[in-house]
Design a protein around this nucleic acid. Sequence first.
DNA 1: TGCGAAGTTGGACCGCGTCCAACAATACGC
DNA 2: GCGTATTGTTGGACGCGGTCCAACTTCGCA
Lengths: 185, 185
Amino acid sequence: MAAGQSGRPRASSREVLAEAACELFLERSFEATTVADITTRAGVSRSSFFNYFASKSDILWAALDERLEAAARSLARPGAPVREILAGITAGLTPDSLALAIANADVMGVGDELERERAIRQAQLARAVAERSREGTTRLRAEVVGAAAAGAVLAAVWQWADAGAGRAALSALVDEALDQALGPA
Amino acid sequence: MAAGQSGRPRASSREVLAEAACELFLERSFEATTVADITTRAGVSRSSFFNYFASKSDILWAALDERLEAAARSLARPGAPVREILAGITAGLTPDSLALAIANADVMGVGDELERERAIRQAQLARAVAERSREGTTRLRAEVVGAAAAGAVLAAVWQWADAGAGRAALSALVDEALDQALGPA
DNA sequence: TGCGAAGTTGGACCGCGTCCAACAATACGC
DNA sequence: GCGTATTGTTGGACGCGGTCCAACTTCGCA
């Protein structure tokens, strides 16, 4: 066993699939592109797709999801520094398929899709923050704080991506948004 | 034409379908219940279902959705009193299939489903609030306020429903939540 | 050479949601 | 009473996302 990998090597990768997918999303649109279309272009079978992504929309979200899950795990630790962790989510975030989709939402016809999926992520993050913030206050107030904080992070990402995903601005945006959500600290 | 209704009378109603659906959700679970199951019990064909609800999960949300849409329309009017409208969403809200589902989320196996659908509604409301709040501040700050306010409303509804949907408590919960979100006013 | 582990593939399957043409039941004018 | 427009129902076909699985392939290692 050891640490190395045994068995048949992968025939593709998330990157290859995501690239093929984004091309198609731009040519046609998100919903006019089927999973089969994507795998055909990437040279893999449809069945294999789900070895790489859990769903079609995960193509766009995979990268950010990893960070969000890591943040949720961090937030679960007692005494976790909420604001630091939230700011850390986007630290060093690089333009990826999500940023591309946000910036080209109209062409990709992916506006509603993004809104829905964003809402889900935002809610998960809000939950994690609320769970941690529930110490000095009501559950209700904690949930409001969570919603505000999660909304801040996602709104900052959106604005950053919408403006072309320039490297510098993001952390400043996040800071401004978190100031509004949690109060300057 | 006139005002009266012509044509074939409806063979069912949202209420009948929702009742049949909720029974099944409690017996089996949400996802183990197919649309066909519901319509069979209600004595209608599967095709007809979508004349009453846009989707399976809309069974739970139809009532609140009407209020949320009304609120969104009100918020779109210039100079709309944000806090009043938000408080109005839940004014006189009566226990319905949604409240039932929230209270029996475990039995119905509907936890994830509710979380997702709630997130979507919350985001829509947040957007509407943000649009209105975008007058004295940044777009970013407005979005954070929107997220907080929408989170407040939904959190209050959740807590109310989770506690059994007693009539009295809801407006107090909404007030407390909105105080936290918008500051006492 | 043989074995186990990891990956791929095609195909079957299910459920949601859409669409449509045929049919059924009502109101209304005549 | 009889057409007719209107509204609704029904069955069936369809497409797509997602799940599942058994057969097969490619690797590392002994």
